[in-house]
């Protein structure tokens, strides 16, 4: 690494990190929040076997899992305007990332819901609780606990996934690295620098995940 490269990298440090903090992280946050809400609803509809809605959910999951995220982004941002639905880049990205990851998270959530021992539902009925009360207070908290590691993985994959937003004009970390690279042409070092920031973000999330898992442990610590 030459003196010149070093200077470029130091100079690029904040210029890449800043969109990381100002764009990548909020993009991840809102997309994940959307994905989370979608996943809980979609998983619960399937768990509770709600007719028709359940079919719609299966179709949604089938569609999302069978098509590339990149193509979905193009359809939403470049395609939908053709039928009069014009979205700004950021909302388009949040919607796409949210609905995309939501489908995968819904499957983990559903598995976690199914894993809650059914007898507790019957016990809930027998002490006079309604189905919704049982779901909200007994089943869902246990399922969320079970799904926690896989939800954290989704969050990590979403941090990385937001780099795709660069293709629909959003200047997040990766696009910023591209822009800087267009000036200095040091792709190896500049992209590695961007990669390092992704690594940093993901490592922090992993640490938080570990701490969270310890803290939550299982109810009563045994299992």
């Amino acid at each position: 690494m030459t003196q010149r490269v070093l200077e470029i990298l130091i100079n690029a440090f904040w210029r890449i990190l800043l969109p990381g903090i100002k764009v990548t992280l909020p993009l991840t946050f809102f997309s994940f929040a959307l994905a989370f809400v979608i996943s809980v609803i979609v998983a619960l509809i399937q768990y509770a076997d709600v007719k028709i809605l359940k079919q719609i959910c299966r179709f949604y999951i089938w569609f999302i899992r069978g098509t590339p995220l990149l193509v979905q982004l193009y359809v939403v941002y470049y395609g939908l305007p053709q039928i009069g639905i014009k979205l700004e880049a950021v909302p388009a990205a949040i919607l796409t990332f949210g609905f995309n990851e939501g489908a995968y998270m819904a499957e983990s959530m559903r598995g976690a819901l199914e894993a809650v021992p059914k007898g507790q539902i019957e016990a809930g009925y027998c002490v006079g609780m309604s189905y919704l009360q049982i779901i909200r207070r007994i089943v869902l908290p246990q399922a969320l606990r079970t799904a926690f590691p896989s939800l954290s993985n989704s969050l990590i994959s979403m941090v990385k996934g937001t780099s795709l937003a660069s293709v629909i004009t959003i200047t997040e970390m990766f696009r910023q690295a591209q822009i800087i690279n267009a000036i200095y042409y040091e792709p190896l070092w500049l992209y590695l620098e961007a990669a390092m920031f992704y690594l940093l973000f993901c490592s922090v999330i992993t640490l938080i995940q570990r701490a969270g898992e310890k803290k939550l442990s299982t109810y009563g610590g045994v299992k």
Partner: peptide, 16 residues
């Protein structure tokens, strides 16, 4: 159901 109660073979306590 509000006037009856059920005790199950495998307890079925709320684990959370």
């Amino acid at each position: 159901r509000k006037k009856t109660a059920f005790v199950f073979q495998n307890y079925n306590l709320f684990l959370n």
